[in-house]
Nucleic acid binder design. Structure first.
Length: 363
DNA sequence: AAATCGGGGAA
DNA sequence: TTCCCAGATTT
């Protein structure tokens, strides 16, 4: 779609009334949310990072715990990284936590703890992309910048009947141009939040509540009866399955062996029980594999319940095997033994939390 | 442009 | 099952 095509879409569109209807509805109907209690740029920032690809209901308890633990830029900047990761445990996309702390440290040192209020400095911060930049500027600083997320693309694709494939990266620019043309300069915060709130409450993906919609009279998709056909979005390819053997290795003190994942890639720096891809070792050789990798002689004890976990782009299918060690004085090559009661100090990804749960239930 | 990066809830 | 959610970064 070209620039002038967008202008054509806006020709018969009452921009002034649209933004008034949207803002009036938002001010009346908005949900009470913990990050809406004030305009503290730090709290706006934290909430926006947590809300990336994550539903409001999921974020609420994490946000409250996180702000209690790290109430200011300085508290987060000087906190222990593992403690931050632990506070993020279960929320997913853990690089968000690492990038956030990295960026907050930069703000503490380079900007004297004040979150920048200009696009260039914000965009330079780790984890702050086009959406989050616009969200911070508009919500925390009342600056009229677009903040285009999935909600905004869905809402505007219907209201203006924009038929671009929203799965394509380039499409975001079309919607940013649309917001530029529509946004209220008097109240950019309520305008941007209103678009998102509308997408979350009314203009939902499957069956939008058009009869309750405050901008129904403006909506070209509703006018044409094609609201459920929009937005157009190409499908993602399905995930690859990977089979693993995972091991609960118990020593004489009833402690279990855990290890830290590498600091890059999937679940970076999180902790886990030892595991190996099935195609790398035959089942009859798994005890030998443990001996070679960890320097531990072990006896098979029993199989625990298998664990299946679906990630964005991969599916783990883990056979879980409980073993006990026979050479308690051996030199451990890697990992550490930790008592069941202290495992909660370590950040675990959900599939390994499930394994911890099994150990707690069966003891 | 496409792949990577988590987890959960709704339909 | 499939979708997709207040996306950013890396390849």
């Amino acid at each position: 779609m070209k620039e002038n095509e967008l202008q054509d879409l806006l020709n018969d569109f009452n921009i002034t009334k649209f933004k008034n209807d949207l803002i009036d509805w938002f001010e009346m109907e908005q949900r009470i949310l913990p990050w809406r209690e004030d305009q503290d740029p730090y709290k706006v920032w934290v909430s926006e990072i947590m809300l990336q690809q994550t539903k409001v209901d999921t974020v609420i308890p994490y946000f409250q715990r996180f702000i209690s633990k790290f109430p200011t830029v300085e508290k987060l900047a000087y906190a222990d990284e593992q403690e931050v990761l632990k506070a993020w445990e279960g929320l997913g996309y853990y690089s968000r936590a690492r990038n956030l702390q990295h960026a907050v440290r930069e703000v503490a040192e380079a900007y004297n703890g004040k979150v920048p209020d200009n696009p260039e400095q914000l965009a330079a911060l780790k984890g702050v992309g086009p959406y989050t930049k616009g969200a911070i500027l508009s919500i925390a600083y009342d600056i009229p910048e677009p903040a285009v997320d999935g909600n905004v693309m869905r809402v505007l694709s219907r209201v203006l009947r924009i038929e671009e494939d929203i799965a394509k990266p380039r499409s975001r620019r079309i919607f940013e141009a649309a917001v530029q043309a529509l946004i209220s300069h008097e109240n950019p915060s309520s305008f941007n939040q209103g678009l998102m709130e509308l997408g979350a409450l009314i203009c939902t993906p499957k069956s939008p509540s058009c009869m309750l919609c405050p901008v129904q009279t403006h909506c070209k998709a509703f006018r044409d009866g094609v609201e459920t056909e929009l937005p157009i979005k190409s499908k993602a390819k399905k995930q690859k399955r990977i089979g693993y053997y995972a091991f609960a290795i118990e020593n004489d003190n009833n402690e279990y062996l855990i290890e830290q994942r590498p600091d890059t890639g999937l679940l970076a720096s999180m902790w886990q029980f030892p595991m190996v891809e099935k195609h790398e070792v035959d089942e009859e050789h798994i005890l030998t594999w443990i001996q070679q990798v960890y320097g531990l002689s072990v006896n098979f004890d029993k199989k625990l319940l298998p664990i299946k976990h679906v990630f964005s782009h991969v599916i783990w299918e883990m056979d879980v095997i409980h073993v006990t060690i026979t050479n308690s004085n051996a030199d451990l090559k890697q990992g550490r033994f930790v008592d069941l009661n202290y495992l909660e100090k370590y950040p675990f990804p959900v599939p390994h939390q499930k394994l911890v749960d099994q150990l707690n239930q069966t003891r």
